[in-house]
């Protein structure tokens, strides 16, 4: 029996470590990738991985609620993105008009104001910073690998917020900061009122980002053509 428990604990630790590695990948994707579809896919993966980590730190029901909220947020942002320009920029007619006035790449909305090399360097530095912070300032009631995950999410999200103000790109950045903080805070405060309020904040924030993306998207499309 004790062997089984030890095996389960080992498996749990392995799953948690794998989830942290996954968070490193999804956070990096948010910083490096321009495409909104991949960004939203990374965000969805991030919520699932954060749920895996949380399930080992708090009651599985709470972890499930948070994962489900993330799973609700991503379709909302997807629909807003569709409405605000994906369909617009991918339609053959519009692409043809874009090519007529210049290259499609030049006409595309400026998601990031800096190049890929700069973002790669910044992401590397932030990763080093996250490792240093998680080792020097351990998070209360949290294993070291999970602490690295939540520190990385907060810093990566902040970096995205510094790099862009486009709601569809910066919005996932802000949601990433909040996810990282929730990862650290949920084990400390598990009262139902706070869990409920967090859910409301997350869902309303997704609605606000979708609203701004819809407004901004229509605008950008008009400006660029």
């Amino acid at each position: 029996m004790s062997v089984d428990i030890a095996w389960l604990q080992q498996f749990g630790a392995l799953a948690r470590e794998a989830a942290v590695i996954g968070l490193l990948v999804t956070g990096a994707a948010l910083i490096l990738v321009r495409d909104w579809r991949l960004t939203l896919l990374a965000l969805l993966g991030q919520y699932v991985l954060a749920g895996v980590i949380l399930s080992q730190l708090v009651l599985p029901e709470i972890a499930l609620i948070k994962t489900l909220i993330g799973a609700l947020i991503c379709p909302m942002l997807y629909l807003a993105a569709r409405q605000s320009g994906w369909g617009f920029f991918s339609s053959p007619e519009v692409l043809g008009r874009m090519l007529a006035v210049g290259s499609a790449a030049q006409s595309a909305p400026p998601v990031f104001r800096v190049g890929l090399a700069f973002r790669l360097l910044a992401a590397t530095l932030v990763l080093v910073l996250a490792v240093v912070i998680s080792q020097t300032h351990p998070v209360a009631a949290m294993p070291a690998d999970a602490a690295l995950g939540c520190t990385w999410l907060i810093l990566a999200g902040l970096l995205v917020l510094m790099l862009t103000e486009e709601p569809l790109k910066a919005g996932p950045g802000l949601l990433t900061v909040i996810t990282g903080f929730e990862l650290a805070y949920t084990p400390l405060e598990t009262s139902l009122a706070v869990v409920l309020m967090w859910a409301i904040v997350n869902l309303l924030l997704a609605v606000a980002i979708s609203y701004l993306a819809a407004v901004r998207g229509v605008n950008t499309a008009d400006e660029d053509l």
């Binding site: 103000e165 802000l174 900061v177 909040i178 606000a208």
Partner: peptide, 14 residues
Amino acid sequence: SVRGAWRFVMLMCL
């Protein structure tokens, strides 16, 4: 522009 609304909500969330 969406800058005003975005900065407000971002800083309040932070």
